[in-house]
Amino acid sequence: MLGFAARVNPLLVVIAAALASGIAGGLEPGAVIAAFGKAFNENRYVSLTWLVLPAIGALERAGLQQRARELIVKIRGASVASILCIYLLVRQITVALGLPFGGQASMVRPLIAPMAEAAAEARVDGLTDAQRDAIRAHAAAADNVGAFFGEDIFVAIGSILLIKGFLAQNGITADPLQLSLWAIPTAVAAFAIHAGRIVFFARRLGRRR
């Protein structure tokens, strides 16, 4: 965390943090490097998301973002608020059903962010660069909030199984269904709060003509 505050390359910070904590924990530097290498290799799956980039890049080359913009401008009711709120809701519901839909590389960059930007352009004259960045950041945030506060409703998600396993180790039997039911109130609150903030943000965009 401290490393992010300093302006050093974050990859160097991660290596330094690993060495520092490993040595403080009584490991040899060579053993820390080996442990890190092992974990890096085992966690390669984290980076598999990048497999979508060639397909997304080719579609962008063929005009995907432009087509998404044109389509949105034609739809009368489409606004920044409606696009982002609908995406937030759809993301929450699909992830609650255990369906891998959405994501920053496969949905937000090629479709959701350009659509929201186009909807704003259609209503606000002379969108500033800062406003464009804010719209894009909101598109990314809708994806994250939707995913985080929908996934625990799905019974077979990793975090539910982690809780079940952990409680079992401590002599407590937990029904995964009970755990996932207790995720629903927070999911509803997350939608209410975040959708409210999107609507508020979109209103302020419109006012600064």
């Binding site: 890190f36 092992k38 974990a39 890096f40 966690n43 984290v46 980076s47």
Partner: peptide, 11 residues
């Protein structure tokens, strides 16, 4: 970076 941070978590 995400993969590096996962590995850091393991360490």
């Amino acid at each position: 970076l995400p993969q590096m941070l996962s590995a850091l978590g393991a360490v």
